[in-house]
Simulated assay, not measured.
Amino acid sequence: MSIPVDLADLPKALAGFGRGYLLTSSEGRVKAVSVRVSAVDDTLRVAAPGRGSVANVGVNPAVTLLFSPPEPGGLTLLVDGTGAVQGDDVVLTPSSAILHKAVG
C-alpha cells in the first residue's frame, strides 16, 4: 500500500522520522549511506554523505532517500528526486514522495 505525500507537506512528513538512507548509483551499483536530512525551502540537504555518494551524484543525479518506519509495522517514507553536489553536501530537489506500508 502506498500513500502519496504532497511535496509541500514533505517537511512535516520528515519530522516523524530520524536518520534515513541516501541511495545513489554509478555503473549499475547502488550505494546506501545513513544520513540526516534537513528541509531547506523546496529542497532537502544531506550534509556530508561521503566522497563516494558525492561522486555518484556527480555522475548520476537520480537519487532516493529512504526512511525506515519509526516503529514496527509503521510506514516507510521514500523520496525520489534529483541531487546536486554543493561542496561536500548533496542537495535533493524532490520529484515524488510516498509513505509505503509493507503488506503481508
Rank of each mutant, 00 (worst) to 15 (best):
R29I: 12
L77T: 11
L7T: 10
S34V: 15
V33D: 08
S34A: 14
D89P: 08
A39L: 04
G50A: 04
L14S: 04
A39S: 15
L10Y: 12
P4F: 07
L7C: 05
V91Q: 05
D9G: 02
M1H: 15
N60W: 03
A39W: 14
A55C: 07
V90R: 01
A62Y: 03
L23M: 11
V91R: 12
V57P: 00
L22V: 01
D42T: 13
P49V: 06
A47F: 06
L14A: 00
G83I: 13
T82Q: 07
E71K: 09
S53N: 14
L75I: 00
A62G: 12
R51Q: 12
S34D: 14
K12P: 01
P61S: 10
V54A: 10
L23H: 08
A97C: 06
A13S: 13
P94V: 13
G74K: 01
G74Y: 05
G20Y: 11
P11G: 02
S26V: 15
L23Y: 04
I98A: 06
F67Y: 08
P4M: 07
P11M: 04
D88K: 13
T64E: 10
A8Y: 09
R45M: 08
D80P: 01
L65A: 03
T76S: 10
S96E: 04
D9L: 12
R36G: 13
L75C: 00
R36P: 00
V91F: 06
S25D: 11
V5C: 04
G52I: 08
T24N: 03
A48L: 03
T64V: 14
R29F: 10
P94C: 11
V33T: 15
F17T: 05
A13K: 08
V59L: 12
Y21G: 10
L10Q: 05
V54G: 09
G104I: 06
V57G: 03
S34C: 14
M1K: 09
L99D: 01
D88Q: 03
G20E: 03
L22R: 03
A39Q: 15
G81C: 10
R45D: 02
D6V: 11
V46D: 04
P4Y: 04
G74M: 02
V5P: 00
P61E: 10
P4V: 12
S38V: 11
P11Y: 02
N56F: 08
P94K: 10
V79D: 03
V57H: 06
V90L: 08
P11F: 07
A8H: 11
L77N: 06
G50H: 12
Q86D: 15
I3Y: 07
S68I: 04
G50K: 13
G28P: 08
G52R: 13
M1I: 12
V63F: 04
G83L: 06
L14Y: 01
A8W: 06
V35P: 00
L99V: 00
S2K: 15
L23F: 09
